[in-house]
């Protein structure tokens, strides 16, 4: 499994009811259901991903995340997970609101644009970064809202959200000590666990 998915796997409690936004081929939901008795649904828009989910026996619903989560009830899930999709949404901020409407806790991962390799690409070479986490050219990328580890923390502060956990992934691995101290510089993938502030 991808490094960010492994970490998320650990963050999902036994028996939780989850919604996995942009669930891809359903690998995460399948292992969560098999090993941790987790229930729930994946939302996906890619036809191949949907077929792979069905083949695995993962409940998947064809859904465009830009349409919001309107049909899902308030606080009807324990957690909402969204991996590597935030940057492709038309309004990432609104999706964050939606996630914390249907669940108490959200887990979000996205490519950190301030990762040092990306900085080298743009700052020194003068080109839009292309990397493992950002594999597309500028003209055909689905990633229309690139952001950094710091940007996301700022958005959470503005929205009054509590950051329960944060981590970074680098390549296939979880980040090492440098990325713990300077996540905005050394983290390639940003991973956040957020909650609404209790009133």
């Amino acid at each position: 499994m991808r490094a960010d998915l492994e970490l998320i796997y650990d963050w999902v409690p036994q028996g939780a009811h989850v919604l996995d936004l942009a669930c891809g081929d359903g690998a995460l939901l399948e292992s969560l259901a098999r090993d941790k008795n987790v229930t729930g649904y994946g939302l996906e828009i890619d036809p191949q991903g949907i077929t792979q989910c069905v083949a695995r026996g993962v409940s998947v619903i064809e859904h465009n995340l830009d349409d919001g989560l309107g049909s899902f009830g308030d606080r009807s899930y324990d957690q909402v997970i969204m991996t590597q999709a935030l940057q492709a949404l038309r309004r990432p901020d609104r999706m964050l609101d939606e996630m914390l409407r249907v669940a108490d806790e959200g887990i979000i991962t996205f490519p950190n644009f301030a990762y040092w390799r990306h900085r080298v690409y743009l700052g020194l070479r003068g080109y839009m970064p292309v990397s493992k986490s950002l594999p597309h050219a500028w003209y055909d990328t689905p990633n229309i809202h690139l952001s950094t580890f710091n940007d996301f923390e700022q958005l959470c502060r503005e929205k009054g959200l509590v950051i329960v956990d944060r981590a970074v992934g680098v390549g296939e691995r979880r980040g090492h000590w440098t990325s713990k101290w300077w996540p905005n510089l050394f983290g390639e993938i940003a991973i956040f666990r957020v909650r609404r502030r209790e009133r």
Partner: peptide, 18 residues
């Protein structure tokens, strides 16, 4: 989709493709 949403609200295992 109406049907899918009802099945989700009822907590049933359901997959949907358009």
């Amino acid at each position: 989709r109406e049907l899918v949403d009802a099945l989700v609200r009822a907590g049933k295992a359901v997959s949907y493709a358009n």
